[in-house]
Design a protein around this nucleic acid. Sequence first.
DNA 1: ACTTCCGATCCTTGA
DNA 2: TCAAGGATCGGAAGT
Lengths: 219, 219
Amino acid sequence: MGTSTNLLVITADMREQRSRVCGCLERSRTITVKYADLACGDYVCGPGVIVERKEAEDFVSSITDNRLFSQVYRLKAEYERPIIIIEGDFFQTHSKISPEALVGAVSYLSVIEGIPVVQATDAKQTALMLEAMARHSQQGLGYEVALRSQKPKDASILLQYIVEGLPSIGPKAAQNLLRHFKTISRLFSASEKELCEAAGIGKKTASRIHEIGNLPYKR
Amino acid sequence: MGTSTNLLVITADMREQRSRVCGCLERSRTITVKYADLACGDYVCGPGVIVERKEAEDFVSSITDNRLFSQVYRLKAEYERPIIIIEGDFFQTHSKISPEALVGAVSYLSVIEGIPVVQATDAKQTALMLEAMARHSQQGLGYEVALRSQKPKDASILLQYIVEGLPSIGPKAAQNLLRHFKTISRLFSASEKELCEAAGIGKKTASRIHEIGNLPYKR
DNA sequence: ACTTCCGATCCTTGA
DNA sequence: TCAAGGATCGGAAGT
């Protein structure tokens, strides 16, 4: 078919510049690679399409140390269609993580977060995949793309994120505190006794929170 | 064991009944397998979650004879969240299809259709995956993922860490804010104008901080 | 992601 | 009514 006309652009994160994937992409005739400092993700393949590329080892360790989940949170906040590409076989890493955890992670991403998880065998295949994604998202396939609707960006999750910074406060306690005090400002002006009134917050936790809120910064 | 309470149901298509996948599923303690004549797809893992399972060879031939696309159409028409599981390595089939076409198909499914394409090595892994998907779609995670982890222990660093949770506030700005206000409590009770007095904080950042500190939590 | 472990919270008892 | 005990929840750390 009388081919294509428009130039395809992929914007890659600076840190990926020296990767084999970028090497392959730059060799491609149909793709122009640009570089930028991306706040999250590694490759922008088209409007709203962000790809986070992870080598198998890195995928596994990002599960282990919780990086994956905060990354997903940011990807979803900034782009319509985040995609994760895993390079290599993550069941074959030398980590002691259980297979259930790996399967669970993929299921979590697909079912709960709605993020496609694509597996590639090597950098070359990743590059090929990125190229196809760029083509699809920039030129479409002849008809309009029906993207799943994205939830309106939720500021409440941001508040929770901040409150979770407090020691011994996880997601549950953060939600309870915010439900009770409504705003962060009020949360930090509350007395120890008032803090106890929030569900799940006892004397001990209350005093810890209060202490930190009023602890003078030394430096 | 005390685990869960509600049992998980997966509805499989009749034609899958004698497959190894169903064998594995039926052996599972947590899953109940039911059978039905499904109009499309192979496994219903939860409300709106349909899985189409394809062995590598079948995946490839479904591309060449265009079956894949009509199947996807039906899956999307009937279910909220279609997922495709490919069993085996589809780059290793005996078909003459080009790698580009394979990669292109996966990209199409992910980018344009928003359908996760999950690769499994064998029937057992497929079963494991189905189980996780059933659990996630029927019961959710069962817990909440922590937005932040590895909180620092040292007091001053902790304060900085908390303040860094604010959007567009990095280490530098956090330090400046804390030096100026000394405590988190005061920082969050400050007015917009007062916030500007801290080094490196302009009108825009100040208003952002103030906004977040007084933003009511919705949930 | 999952599992395990431990401390904090909450709930019941019983004096 | 309140303190002591145990059941439960939630956070943190490890795989």
